[in-house]
Design a protein around this nucleic acid. Structure first.
Length: 422
RNA sequence: GUGGGCGUAGCUCAGCUGGUAGAGCACAGGAUUGUGGCUCCUGUGGCCGUGGGUUCGAGUCCCAUCGCCCACCCCA
């Protein structure tokens, strides 16, 4: 048997309907805030990610799907979306358009990781970028869109946590401060943190080991070492968010694994998937585009893990998305089939999901089949009915049925009060 | 990359100290004329993850290998 590649998955119906619905909701909300989708290649030159995400990051150093094409060029399956957006911005001269530029994207990303719950090698992200605005208001808008989207999906208990990473100039100063404060405790840090000391000292802040956490508690937060400008910036963001009624929590030790972030960074964590399972992450990246050779264009954005988002979708939302019950159309006897299909066409065009019995089942077996589909209505088209251009419409929950003119079936089942109520 | 658990039907699993493969669910049909959900009957469906070894005989024991799951790590 040929099996799917490790870390990839088959999203089958009806689960796939959740995805379609989540994506539709994203388009609806994002578009409402002026964001249009940008569709980008799934593969990019490897260098793009090395220079943007950062050579020292885990993503670049050990998680990329990198390969050579037939001409020996090094290509990489995109591990995230922002780098591609930045590349496309420069390459397509998007700097010529009125700013700020509002873009969204969704699609598969690839990281070579060890499989685990909520973690896949091919996973989908739904993301959004606001380019060309460096103000706190820009950050607030992006977080507002995020919040609005999550709320539209029925999440009311998710907490957005944010932090101030400061500007790149502050970073080195902060690392000095941090190391200085940690030095007396260095021996007591866990093995991983010993390694992080040189490789990526900021990650020590993220350590889950209780003893490390305790040590880290006593250190000066990044945000306090950051430049006064960045502190004012993030404070303004927090202030405006609370004015909008959006709850955010300051997480002084929050750092992120991508090098391009500065100032405002944030995450949304789902308690259901565990303390450390991020369903959304994002932040500001004012140097990214210029670092890639473009002009000085600030940006901020986020990416939501669609797989994880769908996994933790509130029950009521799942029901709302999956709840649609079809109409089953049952032709009985010869000649009824085309009438059934013609009715199905009318129903489909009227926005009513209808499935036609095309395997030649008896009426009895057909009703059994309709029951298994959870059909709300069954339209029976038999010789008796067709002889007088009528159909029998049966409500599967009550068992009540009614004869009606064939012409009126689609209209009655679409939006009619009978179809609307349970 | 590190540590742990598990691989028998589409799914959930049973299969005792080795003796020619089972159940439930699901799926398909039926229980007479054109009416589902309950019940009953029947049917489809498995190189017991793969390869090797021990044995008269292996789903069962041994070795290897592949795959899956969970935790760490990291991230969406």
């Amino acid at each position: 048997m040929i099996r799917r590649v490790k870390g990839t998955r088959d999203i089958l119906p009806p689960e796939s309907r959740l995805w379609v619905a989540v994506e539709a909701e994203a388009h609806r909300i994002f578009s409402g805030f002026g964001y249009d989708e940008i569709r980008l290649p799934v593969m990019e030159p490897t260098e793009l990610f090395v220079r943007s995400v950062g050579e020292g990051t885990d993503i670049v150093s050990k998680e990329m799907y990198t390969f050579s094409d037939r001409k020996g060029r090094s290509l990489t399956l995109r591990p995230e979306g922002t780098a591609g957006v930045a590349r496309a911005y420069i390459e397509n001269g998007l700097g010529q358009r009125p700013h700020p530029l509002r873009l969204s994207y969704m699609g598969p990303m690839f990281r070579y990781e060890k499989m685990q719950r909520g973690r896949y090698r091919q996973f989908s992200q739904i993301g959004l970028e606001l380019l060309g605005a460096a103000t706190p208001e820009a950050d607030v808008e992006v977080l507002l869109v995020l919040h609005t989207f999550l709320a539209a999906l029925g999440f009311d208990d998710l907490v957005i946590v944010l932090n101030n990473l400061g500007d790149p100039e502050d970073r080195e100063r902060y690392i000095e401060v941090l190391k200085g404060e940690l030095t007396p405790h260095r021996e007591r840090l866990c093995r991983d943190c010993q390694r992080r000391w040189d490789e990526n000292p900021l990650r020590i802040l993220d350590c889950k080991v209780p003893s490390c956490r305790e040590i880290v508690e006593g250190t000066t937060p990044v945000g306090e070492v950051a430049s006064p400008e960045s502190q004012t910036h993030v404070a303004a963001v927090e202030e405006q968010l609370s004015a909008l009624g959006i709850a955010v929590r300051r997480a002084p030790r929050l750092v992120r694994g991508l090098d391009y972030y500065l100032r405002t960074v944030f995450e949304v964590i789902s308690p259901e998937l565990g303390e450390n399972t991020v369903i959304c992450g994002g932040g500001r990246y004012d140097r990214l585009i210029s670092d890639l050779g473009g002009s000085q264009v600030p940006g901020i954005g986020f990416a939501i893990g669609e797989d994880r988002l769908v996994e933790v979708l509130p029950e009521s939302t799942r029901e709302r998305f999956l709840g649609e019950r079809p109409v089953a159309v049952l032709p009985v006897g010869g000649g009824a089939a085309t009438v059934a299909l013609d009715l199905a066409r009318k129903l489909a065009l009227a926005g009513v999901r209808a499935e036609v019995e095309v395997t030649g089942r008896s009426l009895k077996a057909g009703l059994k089949w309709a029951g298994k589909l959870h059909a709300r209505w069954v339209v029976i088209l038999g010789e008796d009915e067709l002889a007088v251009a009528q159909a029998t419409v049966r409500h599967m929950d009550t068992g009540e049925q009614e004869r009606m003119a064939l012409d009126s079936v689609a209209r009655r089942l679409a939006g009619g009060t009978e179809a609307g109520v349970d």
